[in-house]
Amino acid sequence: MATVLFWILALVSVIASISMVTTKNPVRSALFLVVTFLCVAVFYVILSAQFIAAVQIIVYAGAIMVLFLFVIMLLNLGTPQALVERGSLQPAFAVVLGISFAVTLVMSGSFVTLPAVAAQPEVYEPLGTVRGIGINLFDPKQPWLFPFEATSILLLIAVVGAIVMAKRKV
């Protein structure tokens, strides 16, 4: 079941991401990216990271993509002719170098022998749920508490920065 789902969604996500790069219309790019995000969310469920899957759909497919579409509509870039792609050798070089990069990554990903671990059960009930994430995130004996607090400051800085950027005069 999980195997069939993986192969179907792997195909869908790769096709959607390639369509995202090749299409001229920014709105279509955004919608193809949403498809890829949803496929990645299902991969997280297959990897028994349920909380991350829910956050992926809420934050990425929800908030971030709405922000992208909002800016596209705001700047009136929805028409395909808004930006003329200049004809040059750059895309050809990019594709050639990208394919060699992909071959390098795939070789290193598929031929590396991961350290052997004890056989894992098919489903980690306590690991990827909200309970498992929360217990580990807020455990003082683990190093995640300080990064969590630092993240709140980062988000505060982002809010202030976005307001400063959007104001006409400071």
């Binding site: 790769v14 790069v21 594709v95």
Partner: peptide, 17 residues
């Protein structure tokens, strides 16, 4: 890991193109 590498490379090509 291989699927992740393919998606990452698609993103790299997109940034370049």
């Amino acid at each position: 890991l291989v699927l992740s590498a393919i998606l990452f490379t698609t993103g790299v090509i997109g940034v370049l193109v």
